[in-house]
Design a protein around this nucleic acid. Structure first.
Length: 1132
RNA sequence: GCCCGGGUGGCGUAAUUGGUCAGCCGCGCAGCACUUAAAAUGCUGUUCCGUAAGGAGUGUGGGUUCGAUUCCCACCCCGGGCACCA
């Protein structure tokens, strides 16, 4: 037999596939689509290392299987090449970035092709191609037109080495993500994208349910009819609200049991808002409508239009109006016959924030019975986003939604009103001072004319000059200065709060000004440093969760006040305590405070009662109260107790008799101060002890029991929060407020290598967008493109490019010279793959309807908080302007675990541990490389490369190759092990198919290896079984599979367009099973049994086994547990 | 500090509605066969202790159960992300 020689076959098949165009994707297919996407690479100068293709191999496998399963597969590839890394590389190599990128892309592409991917290269995109970035710029113009892109002048992060402004996402730990230089704050003219407008929706949709599965009503009541022609229509829903009562104008169809919005077709040349007005007038007669807004997105409906005898595919926008008055025009007879206007109570409909799709869902619900609703809820109980929880969590933290209140405060003597955000409003009575960010515009006003003015201004300048990274360290970097101003009578507490400028306050979160209390670590440290007053309003709660006195949920809660007595000996340094007999417990004398006695009297009484010592004297109250929750064993109740620690002293050793009942409970014992510290195993007592010795607590924590305000005293910190907010809002001290950590996206870079921002500055007209017909604004090719560091991009120096006519007034204008950041192009590339050559639009809407959303998106987890957030933002925006149909771009997301070098470090030129895939392909072949990378471990887990281990994959492929020798012409072999082998093949089909779907490639390969090992033991292998195995292997090792399939087995077409095998459940079942017999849970014997043997039969056979008899001996059998088809367990 | 993920042979790992002696598959290692020899290939073995019978064993300690890698509680360790967001 011919030897397996990868070098002969791999190139051959790569050429063959390309020439036969077997991976060409069609847009007009009747097949079900599957869109599988890789995060496209950023082509660096260094080329690929073996880690890069891991994700690409995975998507290649999935795409090949899906194609064989009969899907129309879109599996494209392209290059993201604008931005700093490419530009810095070009500067280093002293070439033009455009040339460097061209070279790098060619190199990447060649390396990728060597691995044998099934990309349709006719759909390649490159973000630096003017035909591509024309549409990146077009989207920017749309953002600009809707006020989501704006110019601003404010302090932003600036990298002094890369000489450009940076987005919040580009800063890691106060340093530039690219070069590690600490960033500075710099006042700059810049472009901002208002990503924050989408914060809430991006957060909400992470946990949203899958609305795609809610059928549109039109689908259900009037489904499309087969054989009728299909017509596309643009339609509108009108949401007309009566502002007086909130009711919504709908129409009731007379022939159908159906109530819904006014819906109508949009006529040629008609605006959607006009169309909606016209339809409302025609169908209901209401003529005076106030336009509110166009709801985001469009809804697709497919139905049969009976009156026209055609199937309709309708794309509908929704328009929100308010009724101005009741004036009604007469309704035509024809309309009257069809339906009548009705006003519906919207119940809980909050239409202010609705998207079109949500409105559509709500409308359908109007007409559903409860049973129908429940059914649909269940169907939609799948998440909208099938993403790893960890990535969702990362995004949630990044967006950082925080619900709190804005306090309204008045500045004393100036009368200025300011707002201050607080997400922990429980502390409002604790607040003792206010801090303000040095950058805050109010600073100047506060100090104007005061004697401190000059000193404060100097201080502000000093802090501003500090690097961002050095302003916030609690231990050393915090600095502040008093402004001389106060907040007046804050929130009715009667306190004026001094206003300080503090280095640690964030100017761009909340309002840049914060009220401070002892309950925040930084504020506490600041107060200590500058000797500011503190006023804690919460005390610690000790909740016993372990042992006999652990809180028991079933027991009632009882509130008690008590005294905790620290009783000193009359002459020695020892302390009087109790040893409790029932629970092996030693502790201070504790007793309830009765009626109107105080802690001093109660303490004296309890000490006498419980210890017999006759003359205790009250010395002093120690610190504040302690709060505890525990279970009172004797009274069988949960105690919510407030202890007042107090110091007592015995005058002398005189004793009285204690009562019998007290004696039974505990003894009085003396403990040395050391011993006391030893048995103080409950935090409460430690604190009491510390207070008795004047040791101060750490800064108060954010939990415990509130002591102020009086209305909420004694309640638990977390539980009281919402009531406090209600209280503050009611009293008018504050309003509810939500804040986000997500910042506006700083979108301009003062660099050459990026998409020019398509804006023209005109002296007369101001900021004008480049008209869409003039796009793209091409990046000019230049000799000098190094960053200037002046805050202007190198483009600013090219006069012939900068000077341009204003598109509005034709006067003198200047181009915007900043460029877009690296992340811009990747925000929408997945849409361009759907229709990469389109010159009229970024993607044809029919193609978008067919391909969207991306079914599977594979890439590194490091993109969770940048690319994936940015892309979701742009996608939602495109949805809102009605140009895409899904609310999320990526349905399923899978992240790739990194491949590390053999030394366990990241592969990098710096460590000299890079493994080049070209090398591996030369030695063992692309197929072996592919199989190895998938076999290395769980796909999403990091793994270390081992060239040695890769040999195992090569051996596996060789074994498959040699199996050819055993293949007989027969499709199926009869007799011998035939049934067993057939079952094995079907098991393998099932497992491999399921594993590829779940991206468990390592176990899929393992399963195939087991199958090959089994087949090797047979003398002959049937052709049918061998071909099945080859098909399963084909996505993993496409070259060798096709070589055997076409060259050896003489098939005329590629294995990659053959049909994927389907397993037969009937063939999986085996007639006998091995039953294990356990004695007391330990396996002692096994026996063969028919699959469906009954329990009594199994028991009898198990007990008859001599080995089992031996283990049972003469002990009585207590119980026999039988698991059908599995085991018999004898309990003795 | 906070949020995820994980801890199983010499190594990468497999097995979870709790149930076939835990360790599939692969690497490595050892022995054997083939060979003058080597490579390649094939076969056998390979968690630990013990000559064996047998026992122990999935980070540690406890719990639930006839039975726990799988469930519960506490803790330890490793990896990743966030850490100024009041």
């Amino acid at each position: 037999m011919e030897q397996y020689d990868h070098s002969k076959i791999e190139k051959k098949w790569q050429k063959n596939w390309a020439s036969k165009k077997i991976y060409r994707t069609r847009d007009d297919s009747a097949k079900k689509k599957f869109y599988v996407l890789d995060m496209f690479p950023y082509p660096s100068g260094e080329g690929l290392h073996v880690g890069h293709p891991k994700g690409y191999i995975a998507t290649d496998i999935v795409s090949r299987m899906k194609r064989m399963q009969g899907h129309e597969v879109l599996h494209p590839m392209g290059f993201d090449a604008f931005g700093l890394p490419a530009e810095n590389y070009a500067i280093k190599m002293k070439t033009n970035p455009a040339d460097a990128v061209k070279k790098n892309v060619a190199h990447f592409k060649e390396q990728l092709e060597n691995i044998g991917f099934d990309y349709d290269w006719t759909r390649e995109v490159n973000t630096t191609d003017p035909e591509y970035y024309k549409w990146t710029q077009w989207i920017f113009v749309q953002l600009f037109k809707r006020g989501l892109a704006y110019e601003s002048f404010e302090p932003i992060n600036w990298c002094p080495v890369d000489k450009t402004g940076l987005a919040n996402e580009d800063v890691e730990d106060g340093k530039c993500e690219r070069c590690g230089t600490p960033v500075e704050k710099k006042m700059m003219r810049q472009w901002i994208l208002k990503i924050t407008d989408y914060a809430d929706r991006m957060l909400k949709d992470l946990d949203a349910k899958n609305r795609d599965d809610i059928p549109h009503l039109v689908d259900r009541k009037n489904p499309p009819l087969a054989g009728k022609k299909s017509v596309e229509r643009k339609t509108v829903h009108a949401l007309v609200v009566n502002p007086k009562n909130g009711k919504i104008l709908c129409i009731k169809w007379k022939k159908f049991p159906w109530t819904g919005f006014v819906i109508g077709g949009v006529e040629e040349g008609e605006d959607i808002v006009e169309a909606a007005r016209r339809e409302v007038l025609e169908e209901t007669g209401y003529k005076n409508l106030k336009f509110i807004r166009v709801l985001g997105g469009i809804v697709k409906g497919e139905y049969y239009a009976a009156h026209k005898g055609e199937n309709r595919v309708a794309y509908s926008n929704a328009i929100h109006f308010e009724l101005i008055d009741d004036a009604q025009a007469p309704i035509g007879a024809e309309e009257k016959a069809k339906h009548a206007p009705v006003w519906l109570d919207p119940k809980k409909l909050n239409h202010d924030n609705f998207t079109c799709a949500e409105l559509d869902v709500w409308m359908q619900r109007l007409n559903m019975s409860d049973a129908e609703l429940a059914k649909i809820e269940a169907a939609a109980d799948k998440p909208l986003l099938d993403w790893p929880e960890s990535i969702k969590e990362l995004q949630k933290n990044w967006i950082g939604r925080s619900e709190g209140v804005n306090f309204m405060c008045k500045i004393k003597d100036l009368g200025i009103l300011v707002e201050m955000y607080n997400s922990v409003p429980q502390t409002y009575c604790a607040e003792t001072f206010t801090v303000i960010a040095p950058e805050h515009p109010l600073v100047a006003e506060l100090i104007k004319g005061t004697k401190n003015e000059k000193a404060v201004l100097e201080f502000v300048e000093k802090i501003k000059a500090k690097k961002a990274a050095n302003r916030f360290d609690i231990d050393k970097d915090m600095e502040g200065m008093f402004t001389g101003r106060y907040i007046e009578n804050f929130a009715g507490t009667g306190r004026d709060l001094p206003i300080w400028i503090a280095s640690y306050v964030l100017a761009d979160y909340g309002t840049g000004m914060v009220n401070c209390s002892a309950h925040d670590e930084r504020d506490y440290a600041f107060a200590k440093k500058y000797d500011l007053p503190l006023h804690p309003v919460a005390e610690k709660l000790i909740k016993t969760t372990e042992g006999e006195d652990a809180v028991r949920p079933e027991a009632p809660y009882v509130e008690r006040n008590a005294v905790m007595c620290v009783v000193k000996h009359w002459s020695e340094d020892k302390y009087l305590c109790l040893s409790t007999k029932a629970v092996d417990w030693k502790g201070f004398v504790i007793g309830g405070i009765e009626g109107n006695e105080g802690p001093a009297a109660a303490g004296v009484r309890e000490i006498v009662e419980e210890t017999g010592y006759a003359n205790p004297e009250f010395v002093k109250i120690l610190g504040g109260k302690l709060h505890a929750q525990f279970y009172h064993i004797v009274k069988k109740e949960n105690r919510f107790a407030h202890f007042q620690p107090a110091l007592f002293k015995l005058k002398n050793g005189d004793r009285k008799e204690t009562s019998e009942s007290e004696k039974a409970l505990h003894d009085a014992v003396w403990l040395s101060s050391e011993e006391v510290s030893k048995f103080l195993n409950r935090e409460a007592l430690v604190i009491a002890w510390n207070r008795a010795h004047g040791i101060e607590d750490k800064p108060p924590v954010k939990n415990g029991i509130l002591t102020e305000p009086a209305e909420f005293a004694g309640r638990e910190w977390s539980e009281v929060r919402s009531d406090i907010i209600d209280h503050l809002v009611q009293k008018g001290y504050a309003t509810r407020k939500v804040n986000y950590k997500l910042r506006p996206w700083v979108f301009s870079r003062q660099r050459y290598w990026g998409e020019p921002i398509p804006i023209i500055h005109c002296e007369k007209c101001g900021i004008v967008a480049v008209p869409e017909k003039d796009l793209p604004v091409k990046l000019p090719r230049v000799k000098f493109y190094e960053p200037t560091g002046t805050g202007e991009s190198p483009l600013a120096a090219i006069e012939e490019w900068v000077n341009v006519k204003c598109p509005q007034c034709k006067g003198l204008g200047k181009r915007e010279t900043n460029t877009m950041p690296q992340w811009a192009g990747s925000c929408w590339y997945y849409l361009r793959y759907m229709d990469p050559k389109n010159k009229k639009t970024f993607a044809d809407s029919k193609k978008e309807h067919y391909w969207a959303p991306v079914d599977l998106y594979v890439g590194g987890a490091e993109h969770a908080t940048r690319h994936l957030i940015y892309a979701r933002f742009w996608h939602k925006f495109l949805y809102d302007i009605g140009v895409v149909t899904t609310i999320e771009p990526f349905k399923k997301l899978q992240h790739v675990g990194l491949i590390m070098a053999e030394d366990g470090r990241k592969m990098s030129k710096r460590w000299g541990n890079v493994v080049n895939p070209d090398e591996i392909i030369k030695n063992i072949g692309a197929d072996s490389l592919r199989v190895y990378e998938m076999f290395i471990g769980p796909f999403d887990q990091q793994a270390a490369w081992s060239t040695n281990n890769a040999i195992g994959s090569r051996r596996f492929i060789e074994r498959v190759w040699r199996l050819q020798e055993k293949v007989t012409a027969a499709e199926i072999i009869i007799g011998g092990n035939a049934a067993k082998i057939e079952a094995l093949i079907h098991k393998t089909i099932k497992k491999v198919t399921e594993d590829i779907d779940a991206m468990r490639f390592n176990t899929a390969i393992s399963t195939m290896m087991i199958a090959v090992n089994e087949l090797e033991r047979e003398t002959t292998v049937s052709k049918g079984q061998y071909e099945t195995l080859l098909k399963l292997l084909a996505p993993f090792a496409p070259h060798v599979a096709d070589e055997i399939w076409q060259a050896k087995l003489k098939h005329k077409e590629s294995i990659h367009v053959s049909a994927w095998p389907v397993f037969d459940a009937a063939k999986l079942a085996e007639s006998t099973v091995e039953i294990i017999v356990q004695v007391n849970g330990k396996v002692r014997a096994t026996f063969e049994s028919e699959t469906n043997a009954g329990n009594t039969d199994l028991e009898a056979r198990a007990l008859a086994i001599s080995e089992i008899k031996k283990w049972i001996g003469d002990k009585p059998v207590k119980k026999v547990i039988i698991v059908k088809g599995r085991l018999v367990n004898v309990v003795i």
